[in-house]
């Protein structure tokens, strides 16, 4: 694949927003999401020409960002964010009805789902990837991805529809690691 300036710009335009949203969902942090997205494209700028076909670029970008996020938790933490509070969200109560929740509440609920389910669920709701592509990004069997999306959706519904103390959507703390 030839990656010239025009191709690169086209890819950035098409994918930087969903990639950032995926990164934010993984990290809970605007700063980390920024860095993950930028680093992903930096890698693409230097290695993208190794791809055999342009059609693989999208999956490559999501895969690289996901790997970068996981690796980041294993690396030296010297460069972690200074803005310890910037990802904190307000505490809210869940909606009474599953079909009457607002976007902010839904996002908070999503960010509270266990990362094991959150990653496939976010990719599913981004609507940029097929199930097969999600499986490829996360390096999981297709059946596992489908099962995790189902279970993740159930958890989300529970958080958003059952106003019990245990299901309360609460302020977030950073993800320490991805299981």
């Amino acid at each position: 694949m030839i990656v010239d300036d025009a191709t690169f710009q086209e890819l950035v335009n098409a994918h930087y927003q969903p990639l950032y949203r995926f990164a934010f969902s993984l990290s809970h942090s605007e700063a980390q999401a920024w860095d993950l997205t930028q680093e992903t494209f930096r890698k693409f700028a230097t290695k993208g020409h190794q791809l055999s076909a342009p059609s693989k670029a999208k999956t490559w970008l999501f895969t690289t960002l996901y790997r970068e996020f996981i690796d980041g938790h294993r690396r030296d933490a010297r460069l972690e964010t200074l803005d310890d509070g910037e990802h904190e969200l307000e505490s809210v109560s869940p909606a009474d009805q599953a079909d009457q929740f607002d976007g902010a509440l839904a996002r908070q609920a999503l960010l509270q789902i266990d990362p094991v389910f959150r990653a496939p669920l976010t990719l599913f709701y981004l609507q940029d990837l097929t199930y097969r592509e999600i499986a490829e990004v996360l390096k999981l069997p297709l059946g596992t991805v489908m099962s995790r999306i189902s279970r993740g959706r159930s958890m989300l519904r529970q958080l958003l529809t059952e106003p019990r103390p245990g299901n309360r959507v609460v302020p977030l703390t950073p993800v320490s690691e991805v299981k």
Partner: peptide, 23 residues
């Protein structure tokens, strides 16, 4: 809800400062 996660306006310009390596 996911589509409404705000994306910083400056991000795109920051990314585009990295020129690709031509094959």
């Amino acid at each position: 809800a996911v589509a409404q996660i705000p994306v910083p306006k400056e991000l795109r310009a920051a990314i585009l400062k990295t020129p690709p390596v031509l094959q």
